[in-house]
Design a protein around this nucleic acid. Structure first.
Lengths: 225, 225
DNA sequence: CATTGATATATCAATCTGATATATCGTGGC
DNA sequence: GCCACGATATATCAGATTGATATATCAATG
């Protein structure tokens, strides 16, 4: 779970642990309050498996304008040099800056494109993959959406069975009914996403391969932010 | 988390582990696929702390019609006797039947009425409490709903900030927008629940204490199924 | 009578959470 | 001047949960 999230963030730029947490919380929205007790071990795991490489940094000492947390971490190597040279002055607490390796990139794509949910929470797993869906090939993206739709459709069926139960008290029944509605809402959203995705791909095909019988299924891996 | 769920189920009748799992899955709807690796340790914990008591049972040997899984477990003590008497014949694999103790009942009410979420998942925690809300006093019930509403309102604020972010790609933006909508939907549901709850309590007050200034806040702990 | 699937309990490694500890740095108040 | 506080930053631990695996009984099916 976390592995995919971390690799996804590092796919774009190198980051240190604390900043990864901040982005997971503020930008992704999933992982509302991810614990350091899972984040740091995850980073260690990824490092041990060679998916990321770490560079000790002495913080923003060499950055001209020390704007907090946002902005590139360029100058890290200089910071390291400064630290090795015995200059603990003017530095924040040393950071460990992580960057993704080629192996990590391969792992990322494998995790992103896998059929099974990553981790325990369906919705979270899907949300995470959707957040990085721009790194998927168009068909893989569509497949992700349709897989999720199938999941929700199955859930809707069991939700309805439950809501139709006779021995439920008011509160449990309301819960079951609301759950049914929420699932329907999710499916409608997915349908919009799928439709928009299909149109996007149709437009792409007619643009690059002519309007008919396009087998132009090239792996267009967008890297646009 | 699980503790509350288990105690809630045992509050109504004694059950064995496998059956608890089934109800958690089929009736509550939360805990879609609760693992035995969490269920059995949870039962052990509860037993160790004296919240539940366990009776070894030799299954449905003494039950006239051996209907599978549904139906009361009456006859367990007889089953135990039969087993002690050395009658392993005609029995299913022996069950451990759990029943709640007075201490367990106290723990249940304490967990149910607590301010903090039980466990890691807000929605699950609230859903679980709502499923057992009939065991709460009217004000505590209202308080539960309003606490949840506050939670969602706060979430809505951060959701909106995120959705308003400028550097989001299409998929992340869609995710953020959908999340916002889902939260609004949840709040609307809660508002209906709160309204209905207020009317219920108003009706109760005018019925039992006259229509004005009723301090008839007796702890009406409903036990209706 | 053998296989499969449901019932039933148990345990393990891996993972995640929440709490706690440690340390540095910037800022606001006095 | 300085001191408390909050933000930044990493680390570790106990406890809870998952998913997998193991074991055993029983009912139905062929």
């Amino acid at each position: 779970m976390l592995d995919l999230a971390i690799l996804g963030l590092l796919h774009e730029q190198e980051l240190h642990g604390y900043e990864i947490r901040r982005r997971l919380r503020d930008e992704l929205g999933l992982f509302a309050n991810i614990s350091f007790g899972s984040l740091y071990p995850a980073l260690s795991r990824l490092e041990a498996s060679g998916a990321v490489a770490v560079t000790e940094s002495a913080g923003a000492a060499t950055v001209a304008v020390p704007m907090p947390s946002t902005g590139s971490i360029s100058g890290d190597r200089a910071g390291l040099r400064a630290r090795r040279a015995g200059a603990p002055r003017g530095t924040k607490r040393s950071r460990k800056v992580y960057r993704i390796t080629d192996h990590g990139r391969a792992l990322f794509e494998q995790l992103l494109d896998a059929d099974e949910p990553v981790g325990t929470d369906d919705a979270r797993s899907f949300g995470l993959r959707l957040a990085f869906a721009r790194h998927l090939a168009p068909q893989a993206r569509l497949s992700l959406l349709e897989r999720r739709r199938g999941q929700l459709t199955r859930r809707l069926a069991t939700d309805r069975v439950r809501a139709a139960g006779e021995s439920l008290d008011v509160y449990t029944r309301s819960l079951a009914e609301h759950s049914t509605e929420a699932t329907q809402h999710d499916i409608a959203w997915l349908d919009r996403l799928i439709e928009s995705e299909r149109q996007k791909q149709a437009a792409l095909r007619s643009e690059t391969g002519g309007p008919r019988s396009g087998n132009a299924m090239t792996a267009v891996k967008g890297t646009n932010p």
